[in-house]
Nucleic acid binder design. Sequence first.
RNA 1: UGUCCGAUGGUGUAAUUGGUAACACAACUGAUUCUGGAUCAGUCGAGUCCAGGUUCGAGCCCUGGUCGGACAACCA
Length: 568
Amino acid sequence: MSEITDKTVPEYKSLNFIEQIVEEDIRNGKNEGRVHTRFPPEPNGYLHIGHAKSICLNFGLGLKYNGKTNLRFDDTNPSKEEQEYVDSIKEDVRWLGFDWEGREFYASDYFETLYEFAQKLIRKELAYVCELSAEQISTMRGTPNVPATPSPFRERSVDENLDLFGRMRAGEFPDSSHTLRAKIDLASPNMHMRDPVLYRIMHVDHHRTGTAWCIYPMYDYAHGQSDSLEGITHSICTLEFEVHRPLYEWFLRALEIFPSRQIEFARLNVTYTVMSKRKLLELVTSGLVKAWDDPRLPTICGLRRRGYTPQSIREFADRVGVAKRENVISIALLEHCLREDLNKRALRVMAVLNPLKVVITNYPEGKVEEIDAVNNPEDAEAGKRKVPFSRELYIERDDFIIDPPKKFYRLAPGREVRLRYSYFVTCVDYKTDAEGNVTEIHCTYDPATYGGNAPDGRKVQGTIHWVSAAEAVKAEVRLYEPLFMIESPEDVPEGEDYKQNLNPDSLKVITAFVEPGLADAVALTNYQFERLGYFNVDPDSVSGSPVFNRTVTLKDSWSKMEKDGKTQ
RNA sequence: UGUCCGAUGGUGUAAUUGGUAACACAACUGAUUCUGGAUCAGUCGAGUCCAGGUUCGAGCCCUGGUCGGACAACCA
């Protein structure tokens, strides 16, 4: 077998169904081989990990096929949209590492053109001004089995429609009194084809067009035409728009404009969290989480503050794949991508979250040694740093047990372990309080093991981390657990409150001791607290009082063994 | 209920478009290690929702069913 077939076959196999469509279009010379996509958020909320999948898909396609990707704000409903959201969306897309190369567009850029398109439809007798109320339209629309009853305004003359539509725009009518509707098929089994509303009257200021308009186009009427005007070749959206596709195509055909093609894929769901805008908004406004960038939220800004890297999110988007089947991706995969990335790049430091004092009884009082510590064993170029070592240290409370279970490799009376980077120490004594809780332990150290190795070649089973008591810096550490206690909080049956599944312990704040070098840690920097997990610097930090977020724990086979009862 | 869409190991995705089910994550075992991390090697695990049909051959095609989802806003 030749090397060429070995390489080309798997590459071909790994195309997702959208890439297959795109490549087929290129092969057939459709759109002159051009590929042009867009990411079209409505600026009415913050982006989340689900949007990240769509962003990676759209921009990824543009990059892969030497095409372009626009950023377009779908701002057709001024009552819900704000500049704040526009700004955050741009920041998030950029942070993820994508560039729309100045092609920042708005559906509102096309309001005038869209208006002219509507006049064209009226002239073609494909649209009419309707004076039915929303309720009337709804009841007269019928049901999937029962055809709609025609609006009494359906057969107005072109001139009358043109006149009325112009007066709608001119502001002569109050909100909701008139709509412009397409004249399509009242008996269609697809409810979207039963004379959908194209324009509604809303005397509301728009965040970009101000008071210029009081009629606003509906999504269905604006989206495809915006795609078409921008020359979008492949308009990718989520599954729920599948039923809208006939309408999308109807407009482009009726208007005789560039035929963008809509393709739907299954949206991303992740375990133990919610993705719906409504729920996220509710969590934020009700104070159940602190803000849109609360590190427990699946929002892009929340993930960023939590310590996620853009690379890890892009890798994740890549691995979840693209298909039309509904899916729920395990949060474990996201965390895997994160650890994989952070392992390569995060600097290692020592921090003790739950301190237990250790006195090295044979170590000189007042002496402080600066010990060499490796910054990142995965990256030789990361170099070394100095960490102070002295007579009194803190170690993790979990790393000492008076009566240790089987396979416990850490400290216990009479046991010798290595203090990372420094010396072997042996526990010779411990003190307890009235309740029997250990308050302090006494160890002796072996000066010959400086640097962490014994010249006589003896081995220890465990290596534990530590921090020098006098030099350590106090830090606030925020420990996060999943926001919800059940895997699919979004699935809660109608009528039940999804909030009852919120995890009351999703945030725990503690005070920890960290290496002195971390006193002025820079916001958002990722670190690995050795043996504990990845932590990043929260923007709440001030000089001398750093604040850390636990991004994700390290894989922990010990606690797993404990849980599985393998230490009995 | 009508139309549309989907169904492949625990979870996702793939299968050269009809050629004998693969990859990742998870799980498990071992090696290695100054992080019980990382790394390396390996193991387990579905016969493709069901029933028929076409075919030398079906996860891919056809028929009928089952289950799940979307749609019936002047939201997107």
